[in-house]
């Protein structure tokens, strides 16, 4: 009985963890509802929205571009030996294109985005909370939720798809370089082979799901930052949990998106 108490966690611990989880789910749901309520109500913070779009979208482009290029290049180099075994090297551009456009491009870009933008939003909002800037905004008559959360979530929702399109294009260029490392394929032929096998059912679900990825990453990051506590320690915790839960949300949403798109294809 004594050993059991030392080794195994008590029932109370399980219950409190479960209770904490449900509390978190409820708070996140309320936070989401508050977002929609605030987002639809005027006045709209257009200038802040453009500023955040610039910071979230444009400023993330170099990182996304480098990742995309490496992604295309590596995928091509790794896929070549397997296809060469079957004498199907000519299928390399089409296979890499379908992989990048359907799955790898959106997911990898969203994960990089969660790492860069999610942690930034989490840390920024947490430090604002800790230094009581959010309270100061309220006192000065500015709606902090609308100004801070809505603008960031809307920007991330619309910027991630743009980044994914660019990452896909750059990854395909990386794949072109990869194909030409051990062969000789003209850009025109590569381009034709890429579009030979692509269909609308590859492109549209992949782009639509990135809106949800962007929304989830920004919303979770804002939630973690906006509700942080424990002083300066809370800033690190908020940044960390924003990345962790944001990335997890990307995978869960991706799984759901694949199931839904397979129902319609």
């Amino acid at each position: 009985m004594v050993i059991k108490k030392i080794v195994g966690p008590s029932e109370r611990l399980y219950l409190s963890a479960l209770k904490g989880f449900f509390e978190e789910v409820a708070q996140l749901t309320l936070f989401t509802l508050r977002f929609f309520k605030q987002a639809l109500q005027p006045p709209y913070e257009f200038n802040e929205l453009l500023k955040q779009s610039y910071l979230i979208g444009y400023k993330s482009l170099p990182l996304i571009a480098i990742t995309g290029c490496i992604m295309g290049l590596v995928l091509t180099i790794q896929s070549r030996p397997t296809l060469a075994e079957f004498g199907a090297e000519s299928w390399l551009p089409a296979m890499v294109a379908v992989s990048i456009i359907r799955e790898i491009g959106p997911v990898i870009t969203a994960l990089i985005f969660a790492g860069k933008v999610g942690s930034g939003i989490g840390a920024e909002l947490a430090s604002m909370k800790v230094s009581e800037q959010i309270d100061a905004m309220e006192v000065s008559g500015i709606n902090p939720f609308k100004y801070i959360v809505v603008t960031r979530v809307v920007s991330a929702t619309f910027m991630l798809p743009v980044l994914v399109v660019m990452a896909d294009a750059i990854a395909l260029y990386g794949a072109y370089i990869g194909v030409n490392l051990k062969g000789e394929v003209s850009f025109h032929l590569f381009f034709l082979q890429v579009f030979e096998k692509l269909t609308f059912t590859d492109v549209f679900p992949a782009i639509i799901k990135t809106f949800f990825f962007g929304f989830a990453i920004a919303l979770i990051s804002c939630y973690k930052g906006y509700n942080s506590n424990k002083g300066t320690e809370g800033v690190g915790v908020a940044a960390n949990s924003a990345v962790v839960y944001g990335s997890l949300a990307v995978f869960i949403l991706d799984m759901a998106a694949v199931q839904i798109s397979s129902l319609f294809s």
């Binding site: 979208g57 444009y58 743009v162």
Partner: peptide
């Protein structure tokens, strides 16, 4: 910033 953002979005689109 606005111009750069505009170019970025237009290019993606």
């Amino acid at each position: 910033h606005k111009v750069r953002l505009g170019i970025f979005i237009s290019l993606g689109f």
